[in-house]
């Protein structure tokens, strides 16, 4: 299941720490980069490589929000709904995306491209309302800017 490259990466991580359990987080990060999300098999395989119990890996996979234990879209739209953004009407941003993509918060589009999340403050209150896609911040969102962002991402392969 895991590629040889990934296994060697994990093994390298393992050497950095006195105990194998400490390497789980980095191992899962690499595994998620390769597989998109942390499936049951990924947990099993990572546990095998690190010589841990599956539950020890699963504990960490479920602890962090950014490890996905369910399949997610290629792009994750993280819309901030914390105070500053909310005051700048982030609710309508969320509902606009929901309507445009025909999904609810937490769901993935049928083509597997987008998943919508509501998140807490990302520290870009100056540009509220904002959302984060990948490592990019998109600020001062308006319906047409949202549409163009989604269309741009949707067109890219």
């Amino acid at each position: 299941m895991l590629s040889d490259e990934l296994i060697s990466k994990i093994n390298k991580e393992k050497t950095k720490y006195p105990i194998a359990r400490a390497a789980v987080k980095s191992a899962l990060r690499y595994a998620q980069e390769e597989h998109g999300w942390i499936s049951e098999e990924v947990v099993r395989d990572v546990a095998e490589v690190l010589n841990l119990e599956t539950i020890q890996v699963f504990e960490i996979a479920t602890f962090y929000d950014l490890f996905y234990t369910e399949p997610v879209g290629k792009y994750q739209l993280r819309v901030c709904t914390n105070v500053s953004c909310m005051l700048r009407d982030s609710d309508s941003v969320v509902s606009h995306i929901q309507k445009k993509l025909d999904i609810k918060t937490g769901e993935t589009t049928a083509d597997g491209k987008f998943t919508l999340f509501e998140v807490e403050c990302l520290g870009a209150c100056g540009g509220a309302p904002m959302m984060m896609v990948g490592n990019e911040f998109y600020e001062n969102l308006e319906p047409d800017t949202i549409d163009s962002i989604i269309e741009k991402l949707g067109a890219s392969e």
Binding site: E40, V43, E53, T54, I55, Q56, F58, E59, T62, F63, Y64
Partner: peptide, 19 residues
């Protein structure tokens, strides 16, 4: 053998076995 573990975090923490 570690069969039980704590998954999730905070309000969502559960003590469970793997799957």
């Amino acid at each position: 053998i570690m069969e039980m573990g704590g998954t999730g975090r905070g309000e969502h923490m559960e003590i469970t076995t793997f799957l």
